[in-house]
Design a protein around this nucleic acid. Sequence first.
DNA 1: AAAAGCCCCTGGATGC
DNA 2: TGCATCCAGGGGCTTT
Length: 271
Amino acid sequence: MPELPEVEVTRLSFADRIVHAQIEKVQMGKALRWPLGCEPEALQGLQVLGVRRRGKYLLVDLSAGLLLIHLGMSGSISFGTDLPLPGKHDHFEMVTSLGTLRLHDPRRFGAVVYAPSQAHPAAVRLLARLGVEPLTDAFDANRFHSALRLRKTPIKQVLLAGEVVVGVGNIYASETLFMAGIRPTTRANAISKPRAKLLHAAIQEVLAQAVAQGGSTLRDFSDAQGESGHFQLQAMVYDRQGLPCRVCGSPIRGMRQGQRSTFYCSTCQKP
DNA sequence: AAAAGCCCCTGGATGC
DNA sequence: TGCATCCAGGGGCTTT
């Protein structure tokens, strides 16, 4: 479910409310992707200093160490003082002095991992290979082009891998490539500098737009206050196989790349 | 060492 | 109604 916009919308929806909270109790349900990495009781008494985001990870800074939270494919977070009783898919709950943080994740591809510091192997393992943040000045068009030239993988899969630039998942990969007029199958190293600049701009624009719209809610995404997103209402190609392109009317094509679905317009997007 | 596949897991939609 | 099959927003790990 969640790509950078959904994770960021989630962060914005509870970061200010949980800051300065003191952890009172932590409980785990069924196993998530990885074990927590410490005894839940060890977190009691720690204070929440803030919530950051790195790629699709939420980083909850504590007075000692941090929690790395990933929403996987189906995860969503709730935070509040009057949450309903936990359901069968609520697998992590952290009661604090300011409210309860809960991870709902039916598929359990998500994770909550404690690391004593960001330099600790538990954190480094997950964060070390992440590419540049697309919504910061560090995301530079020239450097983006240079990085693409080093890879001959199809551009769609380069975007998804997150080693060049983070946060672009399966929906936004198709959407940004449509906006840039580039076929998903085009080899990354075959993309000219002008086209790389178009893609660079498209990534920034699409992701920023999606954050502004509250993210995409295809099946079950909602932020920590239970709000759904609206970006999917304006998807140009994602999940529109066979429907007319919103620009030229040609039928949108669907295909698979690396076990993931891809959508594109063969008229608007060139190899 | 890049690149391609394999899984982890549950539930909803579809087809017979 | 039941059952089988396929698909789903991710990504670390293993194998080529």
